[in-house]
Design a protein around this nucleic acid. Structure first.
Length: 419
RNA sequence: GGCGCAUUCGUCUAGUGGCCUAGGACACCGCCCUCUCACGGCGGCGGCACGGGUUCGAAUCCCGUAUGCGCCUCCA
């Protein structure tokens, strides 16, 4: 039997990073076993936001490279089928009416057990499971009824979901048994916490996929990072492409304990991916990101500046703060110039008639000026850097002056020298 | 409270009875490189939750305790 899994988000607005990790595991598992990965929107509400949220979910998944097979399905569309099955269960004595709702008759004796791919055997005494509501008094089926029914109807072979569903599993197994369906294999993957060990929420930082995108993370880096939360191919390998992940992923090796989301490690990994990009590709991504985030900067200049920052930033979103001086005027803090007056004057003189006005020649001229003033390179260049870039931290100084052009560079130097 | 799940450096993890005086990565610290920052190189700090067993031998198996988390909703 061919593997078929499903990703089942509820359309609550944005795609949570924790849910995405679970979806990623579904995707990796399906791909490597040559099976199918379905996308099913689980909502029992008919809210207006559904269409919009569904769009966001699909867009985020696509951006990350998590693909699904077949059409997107909606729990909503199977309400009638659920109601019909509930009636049949009532007729068969396996469910009963209760104040307008329909409740499932759970077995009272024995235990319900399953062999979880991630956790091993899990057993729950049946006496501890309540008779759960299948259909609400307003006619809508509940999640714990609709979800297993859809798994049966869709021929889902493996249910890979968050471990917050462990307690639901025995209920769903009993329902599937009652309707004579095939019990899927269950794999409950651990949840993801924030850095404080609490449920990951907005106060920890970005949690929605779109927020990561806006911050300038690369989808392939985020995907790689997510895959390593709760799973590792061995103790050594950390950087893996999507294809490598597909090839090496092993559901049975997923750890059962929850992981904390380490933003610092994500930043590091994103930097690794950024640096590994061919220079033209890096420039292209930078231009695109800036364009999508409201910056109307000359793309030629952005592309020219890209090589200066590729090794220095770990997120595309750091570019404006780091290299914005190339596109907008700066206001250096005079205090940061500390005692650089003589060097500024020397720099102005060195650059005024310099030919060619290019990085290499600029460097030679400024170094010569520093030497004449008997200043160490570090002492000499900091005031110049502050004057030209407005900051003590910047891309390479000579390349920056080159890109800025003689006129702009000189006017900034003169203004700083006069202050 | 009941039921369930989890517990290796600060974090992500390797480890499935001897290869472990526990390995890697991020973070942190130091040194080197260096026009700042970063990159890179080298080195360092740091962990098997606790207590009992089983065994010649336990991070690895069993029991208990503690802590955390999930569910117990006509939420998903």
């Amino acid at each position: 039997m061919s593997v078929r899994v499903r990703m089942a988000p509820s359309p609550t607005g944005f795609l949570h990073i924790g849910g995405v990790r679970t979806f990623l595991f579904n995707f990796l598992f399906a791909r490597q076993s040559g099976g199918e990965n379905r996308l099913r929107i689980e909502n029992t509400d008919t809210s207006r936001e559904v269409a919009e949220a569904t769009g966001h979910i699909q867009e985020s998944l696509r951006w990350l490279g998590i693909e699904w097979d077949g059409p997107v399905t909606f729990q909503l569309d199977r309400m009638d089928d659920c109601r019909r099955v509930a009636q049949e269960l009532v007729a068969a004595g396996q469910a009963y009416e209760d104040e307008g709702a329909i409740r499932f008759r759970m077995p009272d004796e024995g235990a319900t057990a399953w062999d979880d791919v991630v956790r091993g055997r899990v057993e729950v005494p049946n006496e501890t499971i309540e008779d759960l509501v299948l259909v609400r008094s307003d006619g809508r089926p509940t999640y714990n009824f609709a979800s297993p029914m859809e798994d049966v109807w869709d021929g889902i072979t493996h249910v890979v979901r968050g471990d917050d569903h462990i307690s639901n599993t025995p209920k769903q197994i009993n329902i599937i048994r009652a309707v004579g369906g095939e019990i899927p294999v269950y794999a409950h993957v651990p949840s993801i916490f924030g850095e404080d060990g609490k449920k990951l929420s907005k106060r920890h930082g970005a949690v929605g996929i779109e927020e990561f995108r806006d911050a300038g993370y690369l989808p392939e880096a985020l995907l790689n990072f997510l895959a390593l939360l709760g799973w590792a191919p061995d103790g050594e390998t950390t950087i893996m492409s999507r294809d490598e992940l597909v090839a090496r992923f092993d559901l049975a090796r997923v750890t059962p304990s929850p992981a904390r989301f380490d933003y610092a490690k994500l930043d590091w990994m994103n930097g690794v991916y950024l640096r590994a990009l061919p220079p033209e590709e890096f420039a292209h991504r930078l231009v695109v990101w800036l364009g999508e985030h409201g910056y109307e900067w000359d793309s030629q200049l952005v592309a020219a500046a890209a090589p200066l920052v590729q090794e220095k930033i770990s997120r595309l979103g750091e570019f404006p703060g780091f290299a914005g001086f190339l596109f907008e005027d700066v206001e250096p803090d005079p205090a940061e110039l500390d005692g650089g007056g003589p060097m500024l004057a020397a720099a102005i003189e060195a650059l005024e008639g310099l030919e060619p006005f290019a990085a290499e020649a600029i460097e030679a001229a400024l170094r010569a000026a520093a030497e004449r003033l008997e200043l160490k390179p570090r002492q000499a260049f900091q005031p110049v850097r502050v004057a030209v870039t407005g900051s003590r931290v910047s891309p390479g100084l000579f390349e920056s002056i080159d890109l800025l052009g003689r006129e702009t560079a000189l006017s900034r130097l003169r203004r700083a020298a006069a202050s």
